[in-house]
Amino acid sequence: MNSLTRPRPALLTGLAVAAVGLTGASTAGAVVGGTPANRADFPYFTIVSGGCGGALITPNRVLTASHCGEGVQANREVRVGPDGIRRKAVLLAQHPVNLRELTRAQRDGVAVADLLLLQLDRAVPGVTPIPIARPADGLTAPGTVATTIGRGATQASGRGGGAFRSGVVRIQDPASCPDEISSRLDRFWSLCTRDPRLPAPSAPPPFVSACIGDSGGPLIVDRGAGPQLVATVSFGAHCGTQNDPEIYANAVNGRTWALSKRPPWTPAGTTRIEGKRRVGSKLKCVVDWLARPDRDVIFLWTGDSKLRQEGKRSFLRVGEKDRGSRLRCSARGGTAGGYGGTPQSKPVRVAR
């Protein structure tokens, strides 16, 4: 699955995977039908792992697409601004509605908020974050002209990625996009856009559209008081070759969550093993949580890379079969922001 445009069924598949590890199918690319853009004009634009974009919304937070979570988990480095300032995403949180509505989404095809929040290891200096528009600003109303930016594919074939481009689109009445956003939940968490020339029958392609590699990139509106973030790239189907709409995740409706002091971060931390390393003793898996889970906490023990014990107990009784083996432990769990855990601890060797 590519990194901007994906059909709705793939979106649901990505969210289902996200529920067990913040992973998901990726969806969008660079802007087809747009024009070359200067990175300095969009300093808050962030390159996120997995072929995605994002927006710096505070000095140490980036907003991107939830379906980009798999790439972020694999490589947590992000690059912010024209100079590509490198930072590490130490905490992740998808919007709580993703987990709350997951069962329903799997049952009747309801999509949820395609938003992922990244907490960076330290603030980004010299880059002004982009503010998220407030609902009262009215910047997501049908007819609003907005700018989409990205560095994914510039051709419907998926070629041309890496070039930074921008394009102008117009926010549509949700009723004009029934195939893409059909439910009340869809309409609340999604924005539908089209090339401003559409639906003029004589308008030739390519139409302005995000494409492969643009997922998570910002959709911005500027009415003279400076740019404001209204959405992030979620999915689409044809990279501007047809006059179908593109769908963005509504950042305005997620503003309170994205800027809250303590959003429900996906569990993360480090582990270590304490106790006597001999047969008959008990070892304990001690977790230093950076973000503590509040549900479904599981401890995993391995011996010489093979699963030794899995369950709610943090203790392991060392048996004869562990003699001389190298033991490691890890922990995982969930919050309203997703499921995650720790890497394996450093190994300890049981005495022979």
Rank of each mutant, 00 (worst) to 15 (best):
M1D: 04
R6D: 05
P7V: 12
T13F: 08
G14H: 00
L15W: 12
A16K: 04
V20A: 14
S26A: 14
A28V: 08
G33E: 10
G34M: 06
P36V: 05
P36D: 06
R39I: 09
F42G: 06
C52H: 05
I57G: 02
T58A: 13
P59N: 13
L63S: 02
A65E: 03
N75E: 09
G84C: 01
L102K: 04
T103C: 09
R104T: 14
R104S: 14
A111C: 11
L118C: 00
Q119K: 15
G138D: 13
G143M: 00
T144P: 01
V145G: 07
T148R: 14
T148K: 13
G150T: 08
R151C: 15
R159C: 13
R159G: 15
R159I: 13
G160S: 12
G161A: 15
G161R: 15
Q172V: 01
D173R: 10
C177F: 04
P178W: 07
P178R: 05
L185R: 15
S190M: 02
L191F: 04
P196D: 03
R197F: 02
A200G: 06
S202D: 07
P206H: 05
F207M: 12
S209M: 09
C211N: 08
D214S: 09
P218H: 08
I220N: 01
D222L: 00
A225E: 11
T232I: 12
V233S: 02
H238Q: 14
Y248H: 13
N250G: 12
A251D: 05
R262C: 07
P263I: 04
P264W: 12
I273M: 08
K276M: 14
P293Q: 06
D294I: 07
R295E: 12
I298T: 00
D304M: 05
Q309V: 07
K312D: 10
R313P: 00
L316D: 04
G324P: 04
S325M: 11
T335Q: 06
G338M: 15
G338H: 14
P343Y: 11
P343G: 14
V348Q: 12
